[in-house]
């Protein structure tokens, strides 16, 4: 039975899972959740994820939410198919994948998502961009990207010389972030820029990012 993914192709967290499924060459069915009619706050969806957030994965009788948990599950379950995203044959490399997955989750995600929201989502909701909030988060993101720049002078990818979930988890936000006036934070750092050009040229990402647009 094919995996069912509840979400939206344009959503950063849904896209994180879609890129992973494409890298793993796993079949799935995408079931759209209409956020504009609050489908994700209705009892049927809350029964799948009590926090009312997309995406949710349904694999037979297993229901999973949290995009980074879903990618870990998919990468482990289908470790024999598509790209190896977790370095399952080498426990020390696997741990470095987890370190940089956590860096994304704990250091990178909050500033980049805040800035992106302020520039791309707030205007759509008829709210002005909060420039003070943007600047505070630019300062935070710069510090994080300085560490990345340093790291990527020593290794081709974040966890080492191999593409992994650690890199993949960054992609959906960087894709949108590059459409904001702060894009130079990525493009002015030579190793970060090379890294982005390399990972964003992967066929799985090209395929999924074609549907990552905020236009209604």
């Amino acid at each position: 039975m094919a995996l069912k993914l509840y979400g939206l192709p344009m959503s950063t967290c849904t896209a994180r899972v879609l890129i992973c499924l494409a890298e793993k060459e796993v079949d799935y069915e995408l079931i759209p959740v209409n956020l504009f009619t609050d489908d994700h706050k209705q009892p049927a969806f809350l029964a799948k994820n009590p926090f009312g957030q997309i995406p949710v994965l349904q694999d037979a009788d297993l229901t999973l939410f949290e995009s980074r948990a879903i990618t870990s599950y998919v990468a482990e379950k289908y470790k024999g198919s598509g790209s190896d995203l977790i370095r399952h044959a080498d426990i020390k490399e696997a741990a470095l994948v987890k370190v940089w997955m956590e860096v994304e989750s704990q250091q990178f995600n909050l500033p980049i998502s805040t800035i992106t929201y302020q520039y791309l989502i707030s205007p759509m909701l008829g709210k002005p961009t909060d420039h003070q909030l943007v600047e505070d988060n630019v300062a935070k993101l710069e510090k994080v990207l300085d560490v990345y720049e340093q790291r990527l002078t020593h290794a081709k990818y974040l966890a080492g010389d191999f593409f992994s979930l650690a890199d993949l988890h960054h992609m959906s936000y960087i894709h949108y972030f590059l459409k904001t006036p702060k894009a130079s934070l990525i493009t002015d750092r030579p190793h970060v820029k090379d890294w982005w050009e390399d990972i964003s040229a992967r066929p799985a990402f090209t395929k999924i990012s074609a549907n990552m647009k905020y236009d209604f």
Binding site: F51, L62, L64, E66, R68, I70, Y73, E76, S105
Partner: peptide, 18 residues
């Protein structure tokens, strides 16, 4: 099992993000 591990990962992520 892989399924139990999936649920452990899910609640670890809930801890980290929610």
């Amino acid at each position: 099992t892989i399924e139990e591990r999936g649920l452990v990962e899910q609640w670890l992520e809930v801890e980290a993000h929610n």
